[in-house]
Simulated scan of single mutants.
Amino acid sequence: MNVGLRTDSPESDLSPISNWRHLILRTLLLFLLLLLTGCFTDAATRIAYDIETAAKRVEHSENSKFTLAHRTPSKKGECDNNYKAQLDKIGALIIWCKDEKNNQTVSSHSTSYHSRFVDTPDTYILEKNARETLFIELERRNGRVVIADVK
Protein backbone atom coordinates (compact mmCIF):
# COMPACT_ATOMS: atom_id res chain seq x y z
CA MET A 1 0.00 0.00 0.00
CA ASN A 2 1.36 3.38 -1.02
CA VAL A 3 0.66 6.14 1.46
CA GLY A 4 1.34 9.67 0.43
CA LEU A 5 0.26 12.48 -1.77
CA ARG A 6 0.68 12.20 -5.49
CA THR A 7 1.11 15.46 -7.28
CA ASP A 8 1.53 14.03 -10.76
CA SER A 9 -1.92 12.46 -10.85
CA PRO A 10 -4.43 14.01 -13.30
CA GLU A 11 -6.99 14.15 -10.46
CA SER A 12 -4.68 16.12 -8.19
CA ASP A 13 -4.98 19.89 -7.83
CA LEU A 14 -1.37 19.97 -6.69
CA SER A 15 1.40 20.15 -9.22
CA PRO A 16 5.14 20.12 -8.66
CA ILE A 17 6.85 23.44 -8.74
CA SER A 18 7.69 23.73 -12.37
CA ASN A 19 7.86 27.47 -12.51
CA TRP A 20 11.35 28.27 -11.27
CA ARG A 21 10.74 31.97 -11.73
CA HIS A 22 7.99 31.79 -9.11
CA LEU A 23 10.34 30.04 -6.69
CA ILE A 24 13.16 32.50 -7.33
CA LEU A 25 10.82 35.46 -6.88
CA ARG A 26 9.56 34.10 -3.55
CA THR A 27 13.13 33.51 -2.39
CA LEU A 28 14.20 37.02 -3.38
CA LEU A 29 11.21 38.56 -1.62
CA LEU A 30 12.01 36.64 1.55
CA PHE A 31 15.65 37.71 1.36
CA LEU A 32 14.62 41.34 0.81
CA LEU A 33 12.26 41.20 3.78
CA LEU A 34 15.00 39.83 6.02
CA LEU A 35 17.44 42.43 4.75
CA LEU A 36 15.04 45.31 5.31
CA THR A 37 14.25 44.13 8.81
CA GLY A 38 17.83 44.95 9.74
CA CYS A 39 17.72 48.28 7.90
CA PHE A 40 14.86 49.78 9.87
CA THR A 41 16.49 50.06 13.26
CA ASP A 42 16.56 53.16 15.41
CA ALA A 43 19.41 54.93 17.18
CA ALA A 44 18.90 53.13 20.51
CA THR A 45 18.72 49.69 18.93
CA ARG A 46 21.93 50.27 16.95
CA ILE A 47 23.72 51.24 20.18
CA ALA A 48 22.28 48.13 21.86
CA TYR A 49 23.65 45.98 19.02
CA ASP A 50 27.06 47.62 19.52
CA ILE A 51 26.85 46.87 23.26
CA GLU A 52 26.05 43.23 22.48
CA THR A 53 29.13 42.98 20.25
CA ALA A 54 31.34 44.81 22.74
CA ALA A 55 30.20 42.61 25.65
CA LYS A 56 31.56 39.60 23.76
CA ARG A 57 34.92 41.34 23.50
CA VAL A 58 35.36 41.76 27.26
CA GLU A 59 37.81 39.10 28.39
CA HIS A 60 36.60 36.42 30.79
CA SER A 61 38.99 37.35 33.60
CA GLU A 62 37.60 39.44 36.44
CA ASN A 63 37.91 43.24 36.08
CA SER A 64 38.63 43.02 32.33
CA LYS A 65 37.55 46.16 30.51
CA PHE A 66 36.54 47.19 27.02
CA THR A 67 35.48 50.66 25.87
CA LEU A 68 32.88 50.97 23.14
CA ALA A 69 33.02 54.12 21.01
CA HIS A 70 29.67 54.67 19.30
CA ARG A 71 29.83 57.41 16.71
CA THR A 72 26.66 59.40 16.27
CA PRO A 73 24.79 59.60 14.07
CA SER A 74 25.13 55.93 13.29
CA LYS A 75 22.76 56.39 10.36
CA LYS A 76 22.83 59.39 8.03
CA GLY A 77 19.88 61.72 8.50
CA GLU A 78 18.96 60.39 11.93
CA CYS A 79 19.91 62.19 15.12
CA ASP A 80 22.28 64.56 13.28
CA ASN A 81 22.10 67.29 15.93
CA ASN A 82 22.54 67.36 19.70
CA TYR A 83 21.20 64.34 21.52
CA LYS A 84 20.61 63.01 25.00
CA ALA A 85 21.49 59.45 25.99
CA GLN A 86 20.19 57.56 29.00
CA LEU A 87 21.27 54.12 30.16
CA ASP A 88 19.46 53.28 33.36
CA LYS A 89 19.73 50.66 36.05
CA ILE A 90 16.37 49.12 35.19
CA GLY A 91 17.78 48.12 31.80
CA ALA A 92 16.48 50.80 29.44
CA LEU A 93 18.49 52.67 26.84
CA ILE A 94 16.86 55.86 25.59
CA ILE A 95 18.06 58.34 22.98
CA TRP A 96 16.42 61.75 22.48
CA CYS A 97 17.31 63.48 19.21
CA LYS A 98 17.15 67.28 19.28
CA ASP A 99 16.43 69.80 16.55
CA GLU A 100 19.07 72.25 15.39
CA LYS A 101 17.28 75.53 16.17
CA ASN A 102 15.61 75.17 19.57
CA ASN A 103 17.37 72.08 20.95
CA GLN A 104 13.91 70.55 21.43
CA THR A 105 13.35 66.80 21.24
CA VAL A 106 12.16 65.81 17.76
CA SER A 107 12.32 62.05 18.21
CA SER A 108 13.15 59.48 20.84
CA HIS A 109 14.13 55.84 20.63
CA SER A 110 14.34 53.23 23.36
CA THR A 111 15.19 49.59 23.86
CA SER A 112 16.12 47.11 26.54
CA TYR A 113 17.76 44.66 24.12
CA HIS A 114 21.25 45.31 25.53
CA SER A 115 20.19 44.23 29.04
CA ARG A 116 20.43 40.59 27.91
CA PHE A 117 24.20 41.01 27.68
CA VAL A 118 25.14 43.61 30.29
CA ASP A 119 24.01 44.87 33.68
CA THR A 120 23.71 48.58 34.39
CA PRO A 121 24.27 49.16 38.11
CA ASP A 122 23.87 52.97 37.82
CA THR A 123 21.80 55.34 35.73
CA TYR A 124 23.66 57.55 33.25
CA ILE A 125 22.13 60.57 31.52
CA LEU A 126 24.34 62.54 29.16
CA GLU A 127 23.76 65.58 26.96
CA LYS A 128 25.89 65.18 23.82
CA ASN A 129 26.72 67.63 21.07
CA ALA A 130 26.04 66.90 17.42
CA ARG A 131 28.29 64.11 16.11
CA GLU A 132 29.91 63.67 19.53
CA THR A 133 31.00 60.08 20.19
CA LEU A 134 29.31 58.16 23.00
CA PHE A 135 31.81 56.11 25.03
CA ILE A 136 30.53 53.14 27.04
CA GLU A 137 33.02 51.40 29.32
CA LEU A 138 32.27 47.74 29.98
CA GLU A 139 33.84 45.74 32.79
CA ARG A 140 33.55 42.16 33.99
CA ARG A 141 32.38 42.01 37.62
CA ASN A 142 31.39 38.83 39.43
CA GLY A 143 31.39 36.99 36.11
CA ARG A 144 28.96 39.45 34.43
CA VAL A 145 29.68 42.27 32.03
CA VAL A 146 28.48 45.58 33.44
CA ILE A 147 28.35 49.13 32.17
CA ALA A 148 30.99 50.74 34.39
CA ASP A 149 30.90 54.24 32.93
CA VAL A 150 29.38 56.29 30.11
CA LYS A 151 31.00 59.45 28.71
Rank of each mutant, 00 (worst) to 15 (best):
L5Q: 11
R6K: 12
T7G: 15
T7A: 15
T7V: 15
D8P: 00
D8W: 09
D13C: 02
S15M: 07
I17L: 15
W20G: 11
W20R: 09
R21Q: 13
H22E: 13
L23Q: 13
L23V: 12
I24L: 10
R26M: 09
R26D: 12
T27A: 10
T27Y: 03
T27N: 13
L28D: 03
L28W: 12
L32D: 05
L33I: 06
L34V: 14
G38E: 10
G38Q: 05
F40T: 10
F40A: 13
T41I: 06
T41N: 14
D42G: 15
D42W: 00
D42K: 01
A44D: 00
T45V: 10
T45K: 09
T45I: 02
A48Y: 07
A48Q: 06
D50Y: 00
T53H: 09
K56W: 11
R57Q: 12
R57I: 01
H60F: 04
H60G: 13
H60L: 08
S61G: 06
E62F: 05
S64K: 09
S64T: 01
K65E: 15
S74T: 07
S74R: 05
K76Q: 13
G77I: 01
N81L: 04
N81Y: 09
N81C: 06
N82G: 13
N82M: 02
K84I: 01
A85M: 14
A85W: 07
Q86T: 14
L87Y: 08
I90Y: 06
I90C: 00
G91A: 11
A92G: 07
L93K: 02
I94N: 03
I95M: 13
W96P: 00
C97S: 07
C97H: 01
K98S: 02
K101S: 10
Q104A: 14
H109L: 02
H109R: 07
S110M: 08
S112Q: 08
R116A: 15
R116Y: 04
P121N: 07
D122Y: 08
Y124C: 11
I125H: 03
I125M: 03
E127T: 12
K128S: 04
N129F: 09
A130Y: 06
R131L: 03
E132D: 14
E132F: 00
E137K: 15
E137V: 05
L138F: 03
E139Y: 04
R140W: 01
R141L: 14
R141E: 10
G143S: 11
G143F: 11
R144W: 05
V145R: 01
V145Q: 00
I147S: 08
D149L: 03
D149F: 03
K151H: 12
